[in-house]
């Protein structure tokens, strides 16, 4: 049973069967009422403020205009889907007709290339951020474990981490761009260069929190458990697998969550600069576009970025809860 879901359903259920009505109402007010009040207040302030801000692109978008733009982005995506389906239909018909005339004809299939819709951009952003994050984690976790286990390795690596950790990943972007274009030379590129640029920038900023927190997690292995491992003559690998890893998982996941949060923030900026398809590029293009709808569309993007970031963090939290052995610790 998922405790998260249960916590949401329980008060309603109890309300229906008439158990402790007053308590359930209080609980619901806290759980749903107060957040709703906060949201409502925010919308009111937003609406009120936006009517007083006039820009060269028209009035600052309020909740209503933002919602309208969200609908229009949805429509555009639907239309694009129809166009794509129609394109493939035409292509199929054409190929079928040619085959009828000439049985030896080899049908050619061309891929549809239309402008990416808003939802394509969200998907691209997610692919980029997850690629960078997963690659970074694969590098950072082993490094964290090694420097957590050896005080000497820690002393050697720590100054580097401390110096590189505060660097804004965007400072890396020009260097990453130059290195990628110099090193990644192939006639048939599997990945877009702009994608690699943003991905590596994300990767660079994901490394540090994971390394530091994994190392700190490894340091929580007590001398008692190390003694057990020694008395049992566990090999280095078994020691890491059976004792160090489970012990450091809670801290490791704290690092991973911080990393993913930073990665998502950095990605938007990296996409703007690297012109990699994604939400960042969408925002930038709308800004350059400068139509009367642009600000509303950017506002939609801002909200979507927030929601996606929230969902990513929740996902990591659920994963962390699933792999943590210590269920008594409340993870939030």
């Amino acid at each position: 049973m998922n405790p998260l879901k249960w916590a949401l359903v329980e008060p309603f259920y109890k309300l229906i069967i008439g158990e402790d009505r007053k308590g359930q109402l209080n609980l619901l007010t806290k759980m749903l009422g107060l957040p709703l009040v906060g949201l409502l207040l925010f919308l009111l302030i937003w609406q009120g403020a936006s009517t007083h801000i006039n820009t060269s692109l028209g009035q600052f978008p309020g909740p209503v205009q933002t919602y309208e733009q969200f609908i229009s982005l949805n429509q555009e995506a639907d239309e694009a889907a129809l166009k794509e389906a129609a394109f493939y239909q035409r292509q199929e018909d054409r190929n079928a007709a040619r085959m009828e005339q000439d049985p030896n004809y080899e049908p050619r299939v061309r891929e549809y290339v239309g402008p990416p819709t808003f939802f394509d951009q969200i998907y691209r952003s997610l692919v980029t951020v997850m690629s960078g994050f997963i690659l970074a984690s694969i590098i950072a976790v082993p490094i964290g474990i090694v420097i957590g286990l050896s005080a000497n390795a820690y002393a050697a690596v720590n100054p580097l981490i401390q110096i590189f950790k505060p660097v804004s990943p965007l400072a890396w972007l020009p260097l990453v761009t130059m290195v990628v274009s110099a090193v990644y030379v192939t006639d048939d590129p599997m990945f877009d260069k702009a994608f690699l640029n943003s991905m590596f920038t994300v990767l660079l900023c994901c490394l540090w929190p994971t390394i530091i927190n994994t190392a700190a997690g490894v340091a929580t292995v007590t001398q008692d458990l190390k003694n057990v491992s020694q008395v049992l003559n566990l090999s280095w690998w078994t020691h890491v697998r059976k004792i160090v890893l489970p012990c450091s998982i809670p801290m490791m996941f704290t690092g991973l969550r911080i990393s993913l949060g930073i990665a998502w923030m950095v990605l938007i900026a990296a996409e703007m600069l690297a012109q990699n398809p994604g939400l960042g590029k969408f925002v930038w293009d709308e800004f350059q576009n400068g139509s009367s709808n642009s600000l509303g569309r950017i506002m939609v993007a801002v909200l979507v970025i927030g929601v996606v970031g929230f969902v990513l963090d929740r996902g990591m939290l659920l994963l962390q809860r699933a792999v943590s052995w210590d269920k008594s610790v409340a993870l939030r």
Partner: peptide, 26 residues
Amino acid sequence: PGPERAVVFQNHSLLPWLTAYENVEL
């Protein structure tokens, strides 16, 4: 250290993420 000189530690030193069975199994 070696398992032919087994130690019973003062504060049990069981691995908290393993069951009693799994601790002995290790």
